[in-house]
């Protein structure tokens, strides 16, 4: 890299996929894939979401990504759904089956499955 301009250019073309721009209606779904998450079974959860989004052909609107440790060990695997203009949703103790449900109801249907969120956990 020879200049700061190049750095700025990469930032400009990537930022919208990390922080959802207002009004875009886009979604970013992250799965905690640090050692703790993987040990708790995050890999099949990530695979499921990647597959679902691909099959539905909505990758231009929904991005699925791995991420590092979110910090809540006993709630792994954790999936977080970031959507433009909305409060983030943190799903905990996920399985591939639950992820499939989140995909259908929330990612496609726009309806948060409250029972799977961190705020409902262990109620």
């Amino acid at each position: 890299m020879k200049s700061l301009a190049e750095l700025a250019e990469i930032k400009a073309r990537t930022i919208d996929s990390v922080i959802m721009p207002s009004g875009s209606g886009r979604m970013r779904v992250v799965v905690g894939m640090a050692t703790c998450g993987i040990a708790a079974g995050a890999s099949p959860v990530l695979d499921e979401l990647v597959k679902d989004v691909k099959e539905a052909g909505i990758s231009d609107r929904v991005m699925v990504s791995q991420t590092g440790c979110i910090g809540v060990c006993q709630y792994e695997p954790v999936v977080e759904v970031h959507e433009a203009d909305k409060e983030k949703v943190t799903y905990v103790k996920m399985t591939a089956e639950k992820a499939r449900e989140v995909f259908e109801k929330h990612i496609q249907g726009g309806e948060v499955i409250y029972d799977y969120t961190i705020n409902a956990a262990n109620a």
């Binding site: 990537t14 990390v18 990504s65 791995q66 991420t67 440790c69 910090g71």
Partner: peptide, 12 residues
Amino acid sequence: NCGVIDPESIDE
């Protein structure tokens, strides 16, 4: 950045 970005993406 932990739990935010994809650690394998330098762009992020």
